[in-house]
Simulated scan of single mutants.
Amino acid sequence: MSPVALHTLFEALAYAVGLRTFLWTRRKLAPQAFAHDDHVAWVGVGAIVGAALGAKLAFWIDDPLAAFRDFPDLWHLLEGKSIVGALLGGLAGVELAKKIAGVRNSTGDAFVLPLTVGMCIGRVGCFLAGLNDHTYGNPTALPWGVDFGDGVPRHPTQLYEIAFLLAQYALIHARRVALAEPGDRFRAFMLGYLAFRLLVECIKPLPYAYLHALSGLQLLCLAGLLYYHRDLPRILRALFARRGAWEPR
């Protein structure tokens, strides 16, 4: 099977397993996230449309020279995508859909496990796709460097991301009681992932430099972290502070 076909297979698997995980999570881990079934439809549409638009916009921002190389060829313009953009676009889409539908509940906690599972599966496909996927890291002399097909050992940043996502979910799940405010588990997920991507992009090829140093994805990560900056102290306390009188027992 070709690398492109492998990537497509794992991407489809990520969506399918992520959806099934969401249906389970909604019942078992975040039963208060949705007050009515029609709210699920509104939030789902907002998430899908927002994620699709955000994923494309992030690619255009991250690598504008490649994205607009054959402009106005729309097929080429629609080729790339980014998980960072999908997450931020999905967040914006959900918030807009909730305002339209009058949904007042925080719904994010129902997405933490499905996103973790889906993104891990998707990154396996990215790893198997090799150089074609452009998600690999810079050359490295470390013993776990991976040759993706050009004879150069590189940081397997896809595997770093899988390891981070699994460790992050284990921490969030272990501290779920301390993350008592509705939506805090999702805020912890977003803060952690955006911070991780901000750092890991430093060991990946820089397609286009902003401010002579930052990639477009790093700028988007900074924007997302700024959006959640008021929640950051509370989330850090909940995740890392020792259990005390402030924490529910």
Rank of each mutant, 00 (worst) to 15 (best):
72 P>Q: 09
72 P>A: 06
73 D>K: 10
73 D>F: 05
74 L>A: 14
75 W>Q: 13
75 W>F: 14
77 L>A: 12
77 L>F: 13
80 G>S: 08
83 I>Y: 09
85 G>R: 02
87 L>Q: 07
87 L>E: 01
89 G>M: 09
92 A>G: 08
92 A>L: 14
94 V>C: 07
96 L>I: 12
99 K>L: 14
101 A>I: 05
103 V>R: 00
104 R>G: 08
104 R>L: 04
105 N>L: 04
108 G>M: 01
109 D>V: 11
109 D>I: 11
110 A>W: 08
111 F>A: 13
111 F>G: 04
115 L>N: 02
115 L>Q: 02
115 L>I: 13
116 T>N: 03
116 T>R: 00
116 T>I: 12
118 G>N: 05
119 M>D: 08
119 M>G: 00
121 I>K: 01
121 I>N: 03
122 G>L: 07
123 R>Q: 09
124 V>N: 03
125 G>T: 03
129 A>M: 10
130 G>C: 06
131 L>A: 07
131 L>W: 13
132 N>V: 12
132 N>W: 13
134 H>T: 06
134 H>N: 15
137 G>Q: 07
137 G>T: 05
140 T>L: 06
140 T>D: 04
140 T>G: 01
141 A>T: 15
141 A>I: 11
143 P>G: 10
147 D>H: 06
147 D>I: 15
148 F>P: 06
150 D>C: 06
151 G>L: 07
154 R>P: 01
156 P>N: 10
156 P>A: 11
157 T>D: 13
157 T>S: 15
157 T>R: 07
158 Q>G: 09
159 L>K: 10
160 Y>D: 11
160 Y>L: 13
161 E>W: 00
161 E>K: 00
162 I>E: 01
163 A>K: 01
163 A>P: 04
163 A>S: 04
163 A>V: 04
164 F>N: 07
164 F>W: 13
164 F>A: 12
165 L>A: 00
166 L>E: 00
167 A>V: 14
168 Q>S: 13
169 Y>C: 04
171 L>M: 12
172 I>M: 04
172 I>L: 14
173 H>F: 14
174 A>P: 06
175 R>L: 08
176 R>E: 12
176 R>H: 12
176 R>I: 07
177 V>D: 12
178 A>W: 02
179 L>K: 06
181 E>Q: 13
182 P>A: 03
183 G>F: 01
186 F>D: 03
189 F>V: 04
191 L>D: 02
191 L>E: 00
192 G>D: 08
192 G>A: 11
193 Y>L: 15
195 A>I: 09
197 R>L: 01
198 L>N: 10
201 E>Q: 15
202 C>K: 10
203 I>Y: 03
204 K>W: 13
205 P>D: 02
206 L>D: 12
209 A>I: 05
210 Y>V: 08
